[in-house]
Design a protein around this nucleic acid. Structure first.
Lengths: 128, 128
DNA sequence: CCTTGACCTGGAGTCACCTCCAGGTGATAC
DNA sequence: GTATCACCTGGAGGTGACTCCAGGTCAAGG
C-alpha cells in the first residue's frame, strides 16, 4: 500500500507520515526498489495504533518510547505494560473532565435556548 | 482575589492568566489603585469557564470569539448558542474516540498481563 | 533608608507538532 | 523525447499556546 492511500485512509497527511518515520515513531517502512514506500500489514497496524493514541492525546515522546520497546522484543513487556497503564490513567482522567465539560455545555445551551424562547415570546407580545 | 491566589486555585500560571487578558480572552480585570489585579466574582467565574473549556480542547480562538460576544450582550445570544453547539459536538466526538482508545488500552494491558503470567509460569517450570 | 517581595509591562523565547519547499528521480502518457 | 505525475530528501518555516525575562513600581519590615 503506498503512502497516499495510507494518508487518505487514516486522515494523516503524507508529510506527517514521513515525519513520524523520521523521528523514529514508525520504524522504517519497506520500500520498493525505486525507493518508494510500500506499507505492509504491520506498518498499517502501527499507523492505526498511532492515529488512535494521538487522538486520545498521547504525546509523540511517549509513543516513540513505546514503539522503541516493541522493537526490542519480549524483554520489554513489563515496561510496556507500565507505560500503557500510566497513559490509560491519563486518558481516563481526561475523559472524566471532558464528560463534565460536555454536561456543562449542554446545560449552557439549554439556558440559551430558554433565553431565546423568552425573547421570541416577548417580541410576539409586543406585536399584539 | 489577587492573581497568585487565582493561579493556585485553578492551576493556571500567573503568566498564562496575564496572557489570556492580553489576547482579549479575559476582559480587563479590575485593578486596585496601585495597578494590581484584583479578581472579582465574575472574573473568577470566567477563569473557571475558560479552564474547563480549555481542558476539553476548545481553542483560544473560539473562546476569544465567544467571550467577545458575551461582552456584547443579549443581541448575540443566538450566535453564542451556535458556537457552543458546534463545540459541544466536537467535544462529544472526541469523547467517543477517547472511550474507544481507553477500551483498546485496557485490552492491550490485559494481553500484556497474560503474557507476563505465562512467562512467569514458564520460568517456574524451568526451575523444577 | 534600604532591601525584600509581590506585583506590573512589553517583548522575546520555547515547545510540541506538524507543514511546506526546493530540488531530484523514475515511470507512464502523449 | 518531453511533459506530467507521484514519489523521494533534508532542511526551513509555521502555528498554537504558553513561558520567561529585563527592567520598573510600590508597600512593608528590620
Amino acid at each position: 500500500m503506498k503512502i497516499a492511500e495510507v494518508s487518505e485512509r487514516y486522515h494523516i497527511s503524507i508529510d506527517t507520515l514521513r515525519y513520524y518515520e523520521r523521528i523514529g515513531l514508525l520504524p522504517h517502512v519497506n520500500r520498493g526498489e525505486n525507493g518508494i514506500r510500500d506499507y505492509n500489514e504491520l506498518d498499517i497496524r502501527r499507523v492505526d495504533f498511532i492515529k488512535c493514541m494521538r487522538g486520545a492525546g498521547l504525546s509523540l515522546e511517549v509513543l516513540i518510547e513505546y514503539m522503541g520497546l516493541v522493537q526490542q522484543g519480549d524483554a520489554t513487556i513489563e515496561t510496556r505494560k507500565e507505560i500503557l497503564m500510566e497513559q490509560r490513567n491519563l486518558v481516563a482522567e481526561r475523559l472524566k473532565e471532558m464528560q463534565k465539560t460536555l454536561d456543562l455545555l449542554d446545560h449552557k445551551i439549554q439556558v440559551y435556548e430558554n433565553a431565546i424562547l423568552t425573547k421570541e415570546k416577548l417580541m410576539a407580545q409586543t406585536k399584539e
